[in-house]
Simulated assay, not measured.
Amino acid sequence: MSIFEASMLALIQGLTEFLPVSSSAHLILPSIILGWQDQGIAFDVAVHMGTLFAVVSYLRKEVTQLLGAFFRSIFKDERSADATLAWMIVLATIPTCIFGLFMKDIIEVYLRSVWVITVTCVIFGLLLWWVDSNAKCNIDEYKTTPKSALLIGLWQALAMIPGTSRSGATITMALYLGYTREAAARFSFLISIPLITIAGCYLGLGLANSDVPVMWEPIFVGVLVSFVCAYICIHWFLQIVMTMGMKPFIIYRILLGVSLAVFLMIR
């Protein structure tokens, strides 16, 4: 992998990981459309770690509070709003872990195609449009109940299908449940932290058991570029959501889906 390819893929990962536009879809497209080689396990670990560092850095105050409250609830039996939210984040992560354990190979074999991305981009874009247009927007993430956490977690699991978007799916369900747009985005960011950590550890184990040599320059570029882009992206996404709602991302998803359909038909 060249430094240019590493930079572009890391840029894509950083810009799309936390937007409701599907990072997995955008990372699949260069190999399909441009003929780029698969980036490999080591690079996947690198860009996952870059985006993880970005969201933890951006939400460092919230993460510190939630982690402290979580461990106090275990070792000191202290109950607080932060501890409850931390447990809801754990609960929301469980469905994706279960779904990934049983469905990962099936998705890799049968659903990593441009047609699947095309359909899911449009369908989930329209669904986000409908939910965003009718959202009540009257509760924040601290009002998350076990039922809400599981429902959002189930939609996060559904986002393993390329083109669905983890951020888009979780925000869609959160808006449907009555979260404000900002709270839906923040909760989506927070539940990404354990999930990306687990995914990074899983990929890291695969890398440790692999005999493929690691090219360190692209890895360094991947971590750095994905971190910077993701950090900036989180900031601007929250600003856009509070002023314009989800409409820019809905329009982008639908245009992407239509463009891909045209590309497939004329190729």
Rank of each mutant, 00 (worst) to 15 (best):
K76A: 13
L15Q: 05
L91K: 00
L85M: 09
H26K: 10
F53A: 13
E78I: 08
F124I: 01
G178T: 11
K104V: 13
I250R: 11
W87Y: 11
L127R: 04
M88E: 03
P20I: 09
L158V: 00
L150E: 03
A169I: 01
C229R: 05
V131L: 08
S80K: 07
T118N: 08
S192R: 07
L19R: 03
I250T: 05
T180H: 11
P30L: 12
I106N: 06
L255P: 13
D77C: 08
I161A: 03
F263G: 02
L85E: 02
I198D: 03
L150S: 04
G153T: 02
A69S: 05
Y252N: 01
M244H: 13
T145H: 01
M49Q: 08
G163Y: 01
C121H: 15
I232T: 12
A208P: 06
G257V: 10
D140E: 10
I106W: 10
L224D: 00
L11Q: 01
W236S: 01
L127F: 10
V228Y: 09
E17Y: 10
I232F: 14
V223R: 04
M215E: 12
M49C: 15
V223M: 09
A230N: 02
A92V: 09
Y176I: 04
T172M: 09
R72E: 14
G50V: 10
M1T: 12
I107L: 05
M265L: 15
Y58I: 09
R181L: 13
Y110K: 14
L27P: 12
L29K: 02
S113D: 00
S57W: 01
G204L: 05
S80V: 11
K143S: 13
A159G: 02
T51L: 03
L59F: 15
Y202T: 15
L205G: 09
M265F: 13
L238N: 07
T243S: 14
F53S: 10
M173Q: 02
L59G: 06
R72M: 14
A230K: 03
V223Q: 04
V63A: 09
D38C: 02
G68M: 09
N134Q: 15
L101H: 12
S57T: 13
T243I: 14
L224R: 09
Y176W: 15
Q156A: 12
V90D: 09
G204C: 06
G153M: 01
M242P: 05
I94A: 00
L11N: 03
L264Q: 15
I106F: 13
I254D: 04
I32Y: 13
M103V: 11
S24Y: 06
I250C: 06
S167K: 12
G50Y: 09
I191Y: 07
S2Y: 01
S210C: 05
E182K: 15
L195P: 00
T51V: 04
K104C: 07
P213I: 02
I161S: 00
